[in-house]
């Protein structure tokens, strides 16, 4: 019987050994763990993490209905302020921009909200003027280095793009069919990727505005893609929520390996939901099932 790599990885995690390392010699090693806020209150099912090269980390402490700021310096995490906003009763995905502002997707209000570095509400993305669909339900987004915001509109089965000022620029429908697109990622250099959960495949938007599958299905390597991001080297990182790990995929769709595995001790994850790469080699993981955020160094 052939044992699939993601099952091997999960088993390896459980048994305390390291997950199969391919990924072009890429490996994650634990740096720090976030389990409480500044006052010692525990995190509850955090689903979103944003980070930047300055060491800022913003956590969507989802089940507690709040955002938490932290800073990472020399491998040490320091807790910052708690942000509670009426517009964000159930924050689920987070991204930081170059100015320290954050874009946050809320699961309850289905709004994308801009939060200032000081924790103030700076407005919600206006999606009413987006043409083409009477209902817009954002379920994931990608904020790239140019400030452009790409929103996965589940109701319209499409990606809706906005510029840095929040103005609508274009809408790109996903291929027709029974696909279930769960995550998108813009690399800021013109490439837009999407993860599809039924076929467990990645898609890329070509210059003609048509989605094309990138490489073969990854169903042999991961279970359920929940989040997608990438690094400067062109590698894509797919959070495998049900397979409890992160799959690393080359930009051409070829599988490069898996990191992390199922478990409850530090270094392992349980239903991870989002990761953030800070550009300095750190990977921040929203380890939802373990009620914590973990930080790894990527080598």
């Amino acid at each position: 019987m052939r044992i699939r790599p993601h099952i091997l990885a999960a088993l390896a995690g459980l048994l305390g050994t390291s997950a199969p390392a391919a990924a072009g010699a890429l490996s994650f090693t634990p740096v720090a763990v976030i389990v409480v806020d500044k006052k010692g209150a525990r995190l509850a099912a955090p689903e979103g993490v944003g980070c930047d090269a300055a060491g800022n980390i913003l956590v969507a402490d989802t089940q507690n209905g709040r955002l938490l700021r932290y800073t990472l310096k020399n491998g040490v995490v320091t807790a910052g302020v708690e942000i509670k906003l009426a517009e964000l009763p159930y924050p689920r995905q987070v991204a930081l921009d170059d100015h320290g502002d954050a874009v946050v997707l809320d699961g309850k209000t289905h709004k994308l909200v801009r939060v200032g570095a000081d924790g103030t509400f700076k407005g919600a993305l206006d999606m009413k003027r987006v043409p083409g669909s009477p209902i817009i339900l954002p379920v994931a987004f990608s904020l790239d280095a140019t400030g452009s915001l790409y929103v996965l509109d589940s109701a319209g089965n499409r990606v809706v793009a906005f510029d840095g000022t929040g103005a609508f620029t274009r809408a790109v429908p996903f291929p027709k069919g029974p696909g279930l697109f769960t995550a998108i990622y813009s690399d800021g250099k013109g490439a837009l990727y999407a993860a599809e959960a039924k076929t467990v495949a990645l898609f890329r938007l070509d210059p003609e505005g048509v989605w094309a599958q990138v490489g073969d299905s990854l169903s042999g390597y991961l279970s359920f893609p929940a989040h997608l991001t990438g690094d400067a080297a062109g590698r894509l990182f797919v959070v495998d929520q049900h397979g409890h790990g992160v799959a690393v995929v080359n930009h051409d769709g070829s599988f490069m390996g898996r990191q992390l595995g199922l478990g409850w001790v530090e270094g392992l994850v349980y239903y991870p939901t989002e990761i953030c790469l800070d550009g300095k080699g750190n990977v921040v993981v929203a380890d939802r099932g373990n009620n914590r955020v973990q930080i790894f160094a990527s080598h």
Partner: peptide, 9 residues
């Protein structure tokens, strides 16, 4: 708080 994804697609 949460919506099953197919409900909203």
């Amino acid at each position: 708080n949460r919506l099953h994804r197919p409900v909203a697609n």
